[in-house]
Structures are given as structure tokens and as C-alpha cells.
Nucleic acid binder design. Structure first.
Lengths: 201, 201, 201, 201
DNA sequence: AATGAATGAGATTTCATTCAT
DNA sequence: CATGAATGAAATCTCATTCAT
């Protein structure tokens, strides 16, 4: 509440962007537990007080980072949907190691940070809606019949498999990965016209 | 006497178990970042020094916890495999919220704690082998034909979907969950004899 | 702004000086092993955190103390050299109990603290150069002939004897001290014009 | 006082010797501040409690170490005195880096440990007496005349110069050392018959 | 003769946060 | 806009010591 009242650095400030950039590198390199005012400041070559000037509390910083990550995610989805082969591009997005590693840090963070949890929940729902809408548009008819699952289920399933590949990969565990990947790809092949040709043709 | 200063508290010590129990509750309730000597001690009603007596470093404690979780996991798998309907019991295991929440904390921890990563990697591989062996034995012939994926892929896919359901559930996100769950269940129905009848009949 | 998070408290801060003053008293009274954040803070009537604010690590504090001692030493040498009887004044300096006690603490510290060792080595060399230059200027011709040792040797010898007197004195051991002191004084008498008259006359 | 009452390990125990041996290595390698029950135990491959069994308090251990060092010193002096060229052998003893490094640790320790100070003072006096007696016997007549200093002074002077060489050498500082060493050696040459021939001949 | 358990103190460091300028 | 100063809390670890067995 005090935070809301205080006038903090403008959204557009270059310094603000610098801080978020440094925090981003930090969370990727050393995990969310390493994101502290001081560490971020030293990464960015700034004084800790300045970080507090832009982000009065640690929650403020974390939520801003979460938002930044979410925006990048949105951009990646949008790009995928505008590609020639949007469904397969979405699958590629769902297995992007860098994005998923980041998302997992925020999922873990969400366990102890109410503010982060709230934002992550919103973004997660939004992504689901976006994907469901896309799958419906792109695959609707083909998913309707029998054996397959509806667009919303597909979104959950593919996200889960993608995350499994990345999470385990991070541990150095890869057995079964090629097979799981092949399974998804055959599935998509069944649902889609031959690669390269737009799905709607 | 040569290898002194080693294994401090005997594996069997009641105090040791008490500490691990408290740490377990703590990580479930408040996430891995809350596991500190002080907090664990206060949960267990002990002095922080005593925690250090049993677990000289935080890594020691964390690895012991990881091991404890892994053992419980193993027991759960074993139980599933001895049930009437082992495949569906395995799927239930793969979506058990409490176990997965714990596993996710350790996955996150593994990012910053070398010792935890090493142990998690080993256990993850062992679980995969165990599951693959079970799926091969229980479903081998049926998975062989065409559309499905081999046992190793199935293990990855089901683990991924299970984790997705739990992770998102933790955020309060559930859209698509029922559909994804139904998809897996139909899949299992296709692979298995009607519920209740042992797979081998 | 680029090189932020550096030199915390300004060199000139009164608080900083207060901390160094307290640390100085502490090391004199209780030896280097007593120099800890807590103790220094309590001596200075400050909170431990504030000591850490000015000296992020214990090494930082120790090196600052070493530097401070070295500067005082330099001032004392300079004063000695500007006196009427600079050589005897230097000998007095080399047996000053308070200064030497301090120097010995830092020599001992240098054994386990890389940063202190580095600084002590530099300062020790600088002092030697300064003394050699002074002895050369003041006694050059007279040291040239036969039985005596050159300025550089003289510097080592007098420093060693001075330290012996102080170190043993600290233990309460004094036998032979008067004789050793007389030996040096006779030596200087031989090299110098009668007391009071400047060496150059 | 409680310590005096308690029955501790016999002086002759092999374990006791093992502990002292480990403590000795430790103080040489890492300085006196590193000598703690736990560190010594781990060096010796024993449990901390066992160290406490033999040395109820840290002071007990330190004094025992000091005593051990003193005994070795005594042996070295005795050996020097029985050599062909006892005076030069004593000078070699007074510049022995390993012995002096140890002695300096105990001098530093003596600042904060009453018990160690007491013992060091005694041993220091005893050594002085021993050396004075030897110098008197070996060089008496020659020191009597004019320019030189009496045996007791000589003992202080040589000890001081020897320590200077070792202490500064430890810092990597060596300027003037060769000259100081040459000075002492010329001095001894003046006092002694040509090398190799016993002084009394 | 030896050891495991326990404890209280304290050292070192990192942190988030506040405040005044 | 930005910063220096200050603070209190806590995390991690090491220690000496005691006690009961």
C-alpha cells in the first residue's frame, strides 16, 4: 500500500529496463533464489538503493520480471501463429528450453510469492485460451472425431510433454525423450497436411 | 576410528527423523526457499545447532530430504505395480499432487544445488527404468502396433501430463484439465482390458 | 555510476574513522584474533551491520587497519628523519613498543590473510627503502669502511633487534635487553658525532 | 580447576601423540587461529570428543603444543652445542625458518592466552640462560674486550636478527638480508677461530 | 578409554527496507 | 532522480564445552 502511493521510476526508464535485463540474466544463471536487490544491482552495475527506487519491494521486482517474461512468451506465441506451419511452430515453442526454464523458475516462485502466483495464474490462463483458440481454428474439424482430445486438452498435453522434455533435460536425463518427441510429431502429422502446406489449405 | 568425523547422527536416530519430518512439512508448506536451519529447527522444536549437528551443511540436509522423498516415491511405485490394475495405478501415482509438488520443489532446487541435482538425476533415471520395465511387461504387445509410442516414450508422456495437471492446479488453473485427463484415460482404456480385470488375462 | 557498489563508506566518513579507531584499540588490547565484526561494533558503540556496511568483508577491515597502521608508521619515520638526530630517532622508532606490537599482530595476520600479506609486504619493502636511503645519506661514508655493514643490512639488523626487545618485553622477558640496547647505542655513538650535533656537521 | 580434577589421557598415549602431531601440522600450515578441537580432530582422523578427552580445554592443548615445541627447540640447541662449531651452529638454529615460524605463532598466541604466555615466558628465559651460558663458555674472553657486547646481549641480538630474516622472508621481503647475514657472519669470524676448528683450541 | 548427543555463543555474511538528502 | 547511511533480521557455519554412557 505504501508502495502504491510512492512515485516510482517511470515504466519507460532506461535504467528500469537495465535492471530488469540484469534480473533476467540472474534468474536464468542462478535461479530465482539469487534474485535479491543487491545481486541485481551489482549485475547491473548500479547501487542497491537505485533498484529499490524503481522497485520498492522485492515483490514489485519479481512481478515486473514475471510480466516481462509473459510478454516475451506472448510475442513468441504470436510469431508461431503467424508462421507457415503454426501448429508445429507452437509445439516448438512449447519445447523451447530457455523459455521453459524461465517459466519453471516463476512457477517455483509462485509457491512462496502471492503476488507472483496471482500474475502467473492469470498469464497461464491467458496462454491456454490463446492456444485453445488457435488449435480450434487450425485443427478443429480434425480433432472433433473420435480418438483425439479436444483443443483444450491438447494444449495441456503438449505443454506437459514439452515441459517434461526440458525439465528432465536440465537434469541430464534423456531416456525416452526421442520416443516421446516422435510420438508427438506423428500425432501432429496425422492431424496436419504434409509439412510446409498451410493447415487451412 | 580412522574415518572419523563422518556420518554424524546415526541414520536411525529419532532426532534425525524428527528433523527430516519437519523439513518435509516445511518444504511442502512454504517451498524450498524456506528450508533453513532456523526454520527447520523451530518447526521441529529443536535448536538450530542440533540441526547442524545432524546435517553439517544445508546441502547435507537437502540431499537427505531428496533421498527420503525418492524412497517414498519408490514405495508408491512398488505399491502401484502390485495392485490389481497396475497401469492405471501408475497413472494415479503420476498425478498424485502431494508427491509431484514435492518432486517439483526438488527439480527447482536441483537448478542451484549441485548435490541435489546429482541425486535427482539418478533417481529420475531409476524411476524411468522402473516404469519402462513395467510398461513393457504390462503393455508390451499392445504398444508394439502402429499408432502408439513405445514404453519409454509413454513414461515421459504420462509423467509430463501428470505434472502439468498438478503444476497448473497449484496455480488454480484448470481449464483443459478434465479433457487432458479424459484423453489419457481413453488411451489407457484402449490399451487395457476393462477395469478391474488384470492386464494379463 | 558504472562502477557502482564500490567503496561504500567514503574514506572520510566519521563513522568509518570511529570503526577503525575501535578496531585499533581492540587489536592492541586483545590481539588480532579478537577483531570480529561484533567485537569491533560493540567497542565502537555501533551495530555489527554498520561495520559491515563500511567494511563488507573482514579482509576489507583488516586491510584498512593495516593501511592505517602503515600510514602512522610512515609519519613516525618522517618525523624521526626531521629531528636533530635522525639516526638515533630512527632507532627509537624501531623500538617503539606500541608501534611494534601492532606491526607484529599484522605480521602474524599476514600468515593467514592473503590480502594482509600483500599489503604488509609492500609496506615492509617501502619502509626498508626509506630507511636505507636515510642511512645512506646520513651514514654513508662512515659505513663504507671495513667492519660495519652497509645501510641495507643495518636496517635489517636494527629492526630485528628492536623487535626482539619489544616481543620479549611483552612476555616479561628482559634479560640481556640492557646489554643489547647498550650495544646498539655504542655502535651508533661510533658512527655518529656526539649527540645533539647534526650528523652532517 | 575442574580440568585439573578430571583424569585425562596419560602423557604417553599414542593417541595423545597423534593429536599433538596433527595440531602441529595444522598450526604450521594455517596459523594458530586454525587450531580448534574440531580441526585438529579431523586432521588426526579422530572425533572431536576424543581430543577433548585428552585435552579438556583448548588451553590445555595449546600449552601442550607449546611445551612440545619448546622441547624440540631444546633438543636443537643441545645438538648445536655438541657440534664441532657450536657458535655458528647456534646462529644456524636462530635462523631456522621452521622453528621460528612456529615460535612466532606461539608469541602471537601468547598475547591472548594467559597460559601460553606463562609457558612461553618461562621457556624464553630458559633459552636465554642456556645461550648465555654457552656464549660465555665459548666466547667469554673474546667478548670481554671493548667493542663487543656481553653474552647476554649477543643472545638477544642474534635472536632478533635471525627472527627478522625469517619473518620478512615469510612476507617475500629480502632486501638487506644478504648484507645482514654477512654482517653476522663476519662478526662471528672475528670472534672465532677459522671455521671447522673448535673454538676452544 | 572413548563416543554420541546436545547446547549456547558467536563469527561471517547477506538481505530487505527505511529515511534523509 | 538518485544515493549514502543505517538497521534489524536472518542464514550458514564453526566452536568449546558438558554430559551420560
Amino acid at each position: 500500500m505504501a508502495a502504491a502511493a510512492r512515485r516510482v521510476g517511470a515504466e519507460s526508464s532506461a535504467t528500469r529496463a537495465l535492471i530488469l535485463e540484469a534480473a533476467d540474466k540472474l534468474i536464468r544463471d542462478e535461479g530465482y533464489a539469487s534474485v535479491s536487490t543487491r545481486r541485481v544491482a551489482s549485475r547491473a552495475g548500479l547501487k542497491p538503493s537505485l533498484v529499490h527506487y524503481y522497485f520498492p519491494t522485492t515483490d514489485d521486482l519479481l512481478v515486473a520480471m514475471s510480466r516481462r517474461g509473459a510478454e516475451e512468451s506472448d510475442r513468441m506465441i504470436e510469431q508461431a501463429l503467424q508462421s507457415d506451419d503454426p501448429v508445429r511452430a507452437l509445439w516448438t515453442f512449447l519445447t523451447d528450453p530457455s523459455r521453459i526454464a524461465m517459466a519453471l523458475e516463476f512457477m517455483a516462485l509462485a509457491n512462496h510469492r502471492e503476488a507472483v502466483r496471482t500474475h502467473m495464474a492469470e498469464h497461464c490462463e491467458a496462454m491456454r485460451r490463446r492456444e485453445v483458440e488457435a488449435f480450434t481454428r487450425l485443427l478443429g474439424e480434425r480433432l472433433a472425431d473420435g480418438a483425439d482430445c479436444p483443443p483444450s486438452g491438447l494444449s495441456v498435453v503438449l505443454a506437459g510433454i514439452g515441459r517434461a522434455l526440458v525439465m528432465e533435460g536440465g537434469l541430464g536425463v534423456t531416456s525416452g525423450h526421442a520416443e516421446a518427441r516422435a510420438f508427438v510429431e506423428q500425432w501432429l502429422d496425422r492431424l496436419l497436411p504434409p509439412k510446409g502446406q498451410p493447415a487451412g489449405s
